[in-house]
Design a protein around this nucleic acid. Sequence first.
DNA 1: TATACCTGTAACTATAATGATTACAACAGG
DNA 2: CCTGTTGTAATCATTATAGTTACAGGTATA
Lengths: 136, 136
Amino acid sequence: MVNSRFSVAIHILSLIATSLDKNQLTSDYIAGSVNTNPVVVRRMIGVLKKAGLVTSNTGIAGYNLLTEPKDLSLLDIYKAIDGPKQLFAIHEEPNPACSVGKKIQTTLEDVYENVWQAMEEQLKAQTLQDVLDQLR
Amino acid sequence: MVNSRFSVAIHILSLIATSLDKNQLTSDYIAGSVNTNPVVVRRMIGVLKKAGLVTSNTGIAGYNLLTEPKDLSLLDIYKAIDGPKQLFAIHEEPNPACSVGKKIQTTLEDVYENVWQAMEEQLKAQTLQDVLDQLR
DNA sequence: TATACCTGTAACTATAATGATTACAACAGG
DNA sequence: CCTGTTGTAATCATTATAGTTACAGGTATA
């Protein structure tokens, strides 16, 4: 299974999107909601900042979204955190002397590429706003 | 990223499907093609046997498919090895006192369910025969 | 200025997942 | 009986993951 960063990123962005009292939304508070360490939160937000989804200022509590939730697809978030394009691992160095071993890697890459395309469409179809609506 | 078992299973099944000289197809030979340990291969084939995809006999080299490659979808294989239905991990015990934390898990489960459905269709659309054709 | 509180980040640690390996029981066939 | 095979339990090494410590540097306010 893929790690939980995508889940954590969506959780954090949901909190930022719905926060009323900005200066109460510290990394400490977020960590309390996600149930993790504040550093993990700040690390993740650092990634989201680099990707241009969020702003923040050193020393000042609070974060802001740079995109409306309705315009931010889950695919945007996925790409922002650099989630894996290849879902399934392919075993290393199969035997090139064997006809199957020689071509299995590129074949599987093609197969998984098709799978990934289907996933990508689904992620593109859902926005952060959809998530917020479900959270109500 | 998800582990490489799915890839290894497809590799093994491809070898079984294309093997001409049955009694040469030992777990040792397969391991050489996949580039892993024979025990890993026998373990995987044990799983495939339990799922009814393959037969073998203790002490006798060789394996046989119980389904025609054209009738064996990649989804069948995926289910046979009990691949994860949930692709992305969801963080544990978010704070129930927080409105986001309280509902984030079920919300994400729904989101990921949609993604999984899309994937499942893709896997159903491709068969072991398609893989064999690409391996040529 | 002094204090309290915050973000940003590097470095390190603990835990869990993964696959490799060892070991051996049980069976087949010459 | 001997060689080679499958089946499986148990253990080990490596890596990925997330948690944690530590601290530099900024902000705000008394």
